[in-house]
Amino acid sequence: MEYLPEELLICTITRLLEGTGHIAVGVSSPIPGSAALLTRALSNGKTGVTVLNSANLQTLNDGAGELFDRAAQGRIGAFFLSGGQIDGQANINLVGVGQYPQQDVRWSGSFGSAMLYYLVPRVILFREEHTRRTMVDQVDFISAPGTSPPEVYRPGGPYALVTGLGLFHFDKLRARFRLTSIHPGHSLEEILDNTGFGFDYEGEIPITPTPEPDRLSLLRGPIAAEIADPYPKFAAAIFKS
């Protein structure tokens, strides 16, 4: 079955979400949002989803703080974060490039990352652009660190990193990424050339599985309709819905 690169990414993220109780999706996250909804559809009612800024996928009614209260209580199983820069220790930078505060490049800000990254058990880092500009040796500003000293309360943290080129898992003890699979049509050389940080890999690295046909049908049918609520442009472009 033919598929789009976005559909491969959605199905890759979906495999990382299996068994999650409640998944929260932040703003500007159509691909993670689609994966969360697909996970819910496959879960037989076990997985719940909250999509911020949607009309019908919104489960919160106690103001901007409720999501964070739920995360602090351990009620959120998975969340997605990204970064203008992500480094090899899984530190993320959502603030800017250069010497803070008067930076050469300024992004919007850290949003909820400096709390959710510590408290949500399965944080999936997602950044489609995989270049030496985004995957850096050391971030210029730490919006939220990838790891913390043992005395710091931290039930959560980075679980995996999904990019346009491959899938990495994060080893908390070594504070390093390990390359799990390479997306179809890409190579280890390409990933090495485009990654600014060192990472672990072993032997013959598998190719990321292509989207399962039954999941693709689900995605293009009911999930496409659901994701059109918060992300109409994305749904129209990818699923023609």
Binding site: A64, F68, P101, D104, R106, S108, F111, G112, S113, M115
Partner: peptide
């Protein structure tokens, strides 16, 4: 946000960057 970004680059505003739950 173009005017925000320009003001940061010019050092025209003082930043108190934070995280959502801290402000709440």
């Amino acid at each position: 946000a173009g005017r925000f970004v320009a003001a940061v680059k010019a050092g025209a505003i003082r930043l108190m960057d934070s995280t959502c739950p801290a402000l709440i």
